[in-house]
Amino acid sequence: MYQQEILRVSNWSDSKLSNLLSEMEFEGHITRIHVGREKIVFLADHGPDTACSSRNDKRN
């Protein structure tokens, strides 16, 4: 989910959301990746590595 979407539905300030997500990332609950100027937020066990490996499994 894009970080901007979380911001929109949460009605929190940019800084509050960023601080919360940074803490969650540090604790290993989420992963954030930069795509251009945006960030995509994944649950730690549902991140881009998990998505890539499941796609590779389907191809084999």
Results as ranks from 00 to 15, higher is better:
residue 1 M to L: 06
residue 2 Y to S: 04
residue 2 Y to R: 14
residue 3 Q to R: 15
residue 3 Q to C: 10
residue 3 Q to G: 08
residue 3 Q to D: 09
residue 4 Q to P: 06
residue 4 Q to D: 13
residue 4 Q to K: 15
residue 5 E to I: 13
residue 5 E to G: 02
residue 6 I to V: 12
residue 6 I to M: 10
residue 7 L to C: 01
residue 7 L to T: 02
residue 7 L to W: 03
residue 8 R to G: 03
residue 8 R to Y: 05
residue 8 R to M: 07
residue 9 V to F: 14
residue 9 V to L: 12
residue 10 S to M: 14
residue 10 S to F: 12
residue 11 N to K: 11
residue 11 N to A: 05
residue 12 W to F: 11
residue 12 W to L: 14
residue 15 S to Q: 15
residue 15 S to L: 12
residue 15 S to Y: 15
residue 15 S to H: 15
residue 15 S to T: 15
residue 16 K to T: 14
residue 16 K to F: 09
residue 17 L to N: 01
residue 17 L to M: 04
residue 17 L to W: 03
residue 18 S to N: 09
residue 19 N to P: 02
residue 19 N to H: 07
residue 19 N to M: 02
residue 21 L to K: 00
residue 21 L to N: 03
residue 22 S to W: 02
residue 22 S to R: 11
residue 22 S to M: 03
residue 22 S to H: 06
residue 22 S to T: 10
residue 24 M to P: 04
residue 24 M to L: 12
residue 24 M to H: 11
residue 24 M to G: 05
residue 25 E to N: 02
residue 26 F to V: 06
residue 27 E to K: 12
residue 27 E to H: 06
residue 28 G to T: 03
residue 28 G to C: 01
residue 28 G to Q: 01
residue 28 G to E: 03
residue 28 G to Y: 00
residue 28 G to A: 02
residue 29 H to V: 11
residue 30 I to R: 02
residue 31 T to C: 07
residue 31 T to I: 09
residue 31 T to H: 10
residue 33 I to M: 08
residue 34 H to K: 14
residue 34 H to F: 05
residue 34 H to N: 10
residue 35 V to Y: 09
residue 35 V to T: 08
residue 35 V to D: 05
residue 36 G to A: 01
residue 36 G to E: 00
residue 36 G to Y: 00
residue 36 G to N: 02
residue 37 R to W: 13
residue 38 E to S: 14
residue 38 E to I: 12
residue 38 E to K: 15
residue 38 E to C: 13
residue 39 K to Y: 05
residue 39 K to R: 09
residue 40 I to W: 04
residue 40 I to L: 09
residue 40 I to P: 03
residue 40 I to E: 01
residue 41 V to S: 01
residue 41 V to A: 01
residue 42 F to K: 00
residue 42 F to W: 04
residue 42 F to S: 03
residue 43 L to R: 14
residue 43 L to K: 14
residue 44 A to R: 02
residue 46 H to N: 13
residue 47 G to P: 00
residue 47 G to T: 05
residue 48 P to S: 10
residue 48 P to W: 15
residue 48 P to C: 04
residue 49 D to N: 11
residue 50 T to G: 05
residue 50 T to I: 08
residue 50 T to Y: 07
residue 50 T to E: 09
residue 51 A to G: 01
residue 51 A to N: 04
residue 51 A to H: 06
residue 51 A to L: 09
residue 51 A to T: 08
residue 52 C to V: 13
residue 52 C to S: 13
residue 52 C to D: 12
residue 52 C to F: 14
residue 53 S to N: 06
residue 53 S to A: 10
residue 53 S to F: 06
residue 54 S to I: 08
residue 56 N to Y: 13
residue 56 N to A: 13
residue 57 D to P: 04
residue 57 D to T: 08
residue 57 D to A: 12
residue 58 K to I: 07
residue 58 K to C: 07
residue 58 K to P: 00
residue 58 K to S: 11
residue 59 R to M: 10
residue 59 R to F: 10
residue 59 R to P: 05
residue 60 N to Y: 08
residue 60 N to C: 06
residue 60 N to G: 07
residue 60 N to D: 07
residue 60 N to I: 06
